[in-house]
Design a protein around this nucleic acid. Structure first.
Length: 534
DNA sequence: GTAGGGTTAG
């Protein structure tokens, strides 16, 4: 109000009464319109705010435009934010920063990159907000640009800012650049807990658990996030017992800490430990969230504990998490892996939102249960619903074709995969195709595909081919694969079988002896190798 | 009116 009164006073001294009056009214109306818009935004009435905004273009300054854009972003209306940004008469550094932060929220690093370049071209100088937003958004996609942005940061003297510092530290961590990480850490003069945590994360991600622990022990302050970071770091480095020891000695735990530790067990296939820990969590009085529940469902799927998974389903229905896509997808996956495809399909049908992972789970589930035609139908439905397939979709789809012996369908999808969707065939796609040809007796096609593959075949591809030789008694081809047996000793087992069938007893015995020498019998007896036995 | 740490699925 002081600024307003002083402005009035100056006008009284220099202007005629009419001009003074109209200026005063305009100022009052500008102030009140801006305030009203801000009020609407504050109360979440974004439509009313926009209406007022449109009705009073002359009253809206850059600050009001920025507020409107911020409100749209907050309400996940990125397109409206964008339209308004495009119409802005004057864009300041806040306008650009806001749009960049919106792109981060929408997980659109390409848009962020574009905005950053446009901002530079528009001659607007970036500030510490710009860099912390841009660098965070570039990690994972444009991390290669991090050192260049760091140079700009140093040039503009923004390197001691804590936000810029932790963003840069994540960038250098991603680039596996230990020196860069430490240099940025040292440059942040007033380090806070986040700065220290970022160094612990960095060392952990570089596999330097000892160094990470030393830093943790040196930290002037630690919070629950620091502790969880440490536990998670040990888990990522496969040091589960160290993780558990930290976990047990933490001064306090919350749902995030519990979930991280449960996930740690699930990750190293200790599913029962994961479930036991979940039960301890419940006993401790910590309520699970949707992150916890999908982790535990994953553990149930891993050890096929249908009963426990089924109980979790009831919990989910009561929990209020019934619209979480990830959680429901875990549920679908749990049911397919626990053998109840009908329940999986029911859950899937009930899902309001489905993403590519949800579709992949149901297609993979059908494939696993031998419902090849159903898998193909679900794939068609997926395309119709506008969800784009990815590499996993095709692995599941092709394996459905293998189960159903659908050679032509498989061939068609294999060629459409790259032709229509630009998905390059990976090893697993080739191994499905070799398996598909091999199981249906088209050994020549299988062999040709192995030769034409753009990379060296792996155990899965060879396994598929060798199984085919065994199934269809292709002695010639199999005999030619003997040189591979040193790497994949189970080939001997197949050679024993084929030579036996052919009556080549001395060679069968030779192969059997070689197999015993190579320890193939021991290797295959109790292992989880994917290499199929003939 | 703008910025950063820990947990979820195929």
């Amino acid at each position: 109000m002081n600024r307003v009164s002083s402005t009035f006073h100056n006008h009284f001294l220099t202007r005629s009464p009419n001009i003074i009056l109209s200026t005063c009214l305009r100022r009052i109306s500008t102030l009140s319109v801006t305030n009203l818009i801000q009020n609407h935004i504050h109360n979440g009435n974004i439509t009313d705010a926009r209406q007022l905004f449109d009705q009073n273009p002359q009253s809206c300054n850059t600050l009001t435009w920025n507020s409107m854009i911020t409100a749209y972003i907050k309400h996940n209306q990125m397109q409206s934010a964008h339209n308004l940004f495009d119409e802005m008469p004057v864009r300041d550094v806040v306008s650009w920063n806001t749009m960049m932060s919106g792109s981060n929220k929408a997980k659109d690093p390409h848009k962020l990159h574009q905005l950053f370049l446009q901002m530079k071209r528009a001659g607007v100088t970036p500030n510490h907000f710009t860099f912390s937003t841009a660098i965070s958004g570039f990690v994972n996609t444009f991390e290669i640009l991090v050192p260049q942005l760091h140079v700009l940061v140093l040039h503009l003297g923004l390197h001691s800012n804590v936000f810029v510092g932790s963003a840069l530290m994540r960038g250098y961590t991603r680039l596996q650049d230990r020196k860069g990480l430490l240099r940025v850490f040292d440059d942040v003069v007033l380090k806070d807990i986040s700065t220290w945590n970022a160094l612990v994360v960095g060392y952990m991600e570089l596999g330097l658990t000892v160094e990470a622990q030393i830093i943790f022990d040196k930290m002037p302050d630690v919070n629950i996030i620091s502790w969880t970071t440490l536990v998670n770091g040990y888990i990522e480095n496969k040091k589960i017992s160290q993780a558990r020891s930290i976990f047990d000695n933490m001064p306090q735990k919350n749902v995030v800490t519990w979930t991280a530790m449960i996930k740690g067990y699930a990750k190293c296939d200790k599913y029962n430990d994961a479930i036991q820990l979940f039960i301890s969590m419940l006993k401790s009085g910590t309520r699970p969230n949707h992150f916890t529940l999908s982790t535990v469902l994953d553990a149930c799927a891993g050890c096929s504990t249908f009963l426990f998974g089924n109980q979790l389903h009831s919990c989910i229905l009561k929990s209020g998490f019934h619209s979480e896509v990830v959680l429901l997808t875990s549920l679908v996956d749990m049911y397919t892996k626990c053998g109840d495809i009908e329940a999986a399909l029911r859950v899937f049908e009930s899902m309001e939102k489905k993403n590519v992972v949800s579709w992949n789970s149901v297609i993979g589930g059908c494939a696993r249960h031998g419902l090849a035609t159903r898998a193909l139908c679900e794939f068609e439905r997926m395309i119709e619903s506008g969800v784009k397939p990815d590499n996993v979709t095709y692995i599941n789809l092709l394996s459905a074709c293998v189960h159903g012996g659908l050679v032509e369908e498989g061939e068609r999808h294999f060629s459409l995969m790259e032709g229509r969707y630009g998905i390059k065939a990976e090893m697993k796609h080739y191994s499905c195709m070799v398996d598909l040809y091999g199981k249906s007796g088209e050994i020549e096609k299988a062999e040709r595909l192995v030769k034409e593959m753009p990379f060296e075949p792996d155990v899965g591809v060879w396994g598929a081919l060798i199984t085919a030789c065994g199934l269809h008694s292709c002695y010639e081809l199999a005999d030619g694969l003997e040189n591979l047996a040193r790497d994949y000793p189970t080939i001997y087992a197949m050679l024993v079988k084929l030579n036996g069938e052919k009556g080549e007893w001395s060679r069968a015995v030779e192969m059997r002896n070689k197999m015993m020498e190579a320890g193939a019998r021991q290797q295959t007896a109790g292992s989880r190798t994917e290499f199929p036995l003939v």
